[in-house]
Design a protein around this nucleic acid. Structure first.
Length: 130
DNA sequence: GTTGTGACATTAT
DNA sequence: CATAATGCCACAA
């Protein structure tokens, strides 16, 4: 049976009609905004996962989009992107990549213990249901 | 329209 | 532990 895969975000905010043929800017995407909002709410010194962020943003099963959202996030938002890791608290960036080191550095600066590309399980946040 | 790709997750082998 | 197979879905070409 084919499931209806309607994004709950569509119910939260009606998609506004795109004007003319203007290319929809990421900033206009409610899903991305929801994700950014959730990430912004992750307390300092705590960590969450892509899947959990997506779920808390009302987008269950769309962990990948959480990654995309962080990727295209405007710099001016200065999101705490480093507080988002993969399942099991693993840093998803390739070790020795510039981003990996940056994320580990920022996390440790907040008191989060990073061992072997993995954050302490205790640092994981619940995010509740928002 | 199709295809390939990805800052993912889960399950199976 | 490591791979592979799926599921998932937005985006770029």
């Amino acid at each position: 049976m084919r499931r209806e895969r309607r994004a709950p975000s569509e119910l939260l905010q009606p998609l506004r009609p795109r004007r003319g043929s203007s290319p929809a800017a990421p900033e206009d995407n409610p899903a991305l905004q929801a994700i950014w909002h959730v990430v912004c709410a992750i307390p300092r010194g705590q960590v969450s996962t892509y899947g959990a962020v997506a779920h808390a943003a009302g987008l269950p099963g769309r962990a990948r989009q959480a990654g995309f959202a962080l990727r295209v996030a405007p710099k001016v938002l200065s999101l705490p992107w480093h507080r988002v890791v993969g399942a099991g608290g693993r840093i998803v960036f390739p070790p020795s990549s510039r981003q990996y080191r940056e994320q580990a550095r920022r996390l440790r600066a907040e008191g989060v213990r990073v061992v072997d590309g993995r954050v302490a399980p205790a640092a994981l946040t619940d995010l509740g249901e928002l």
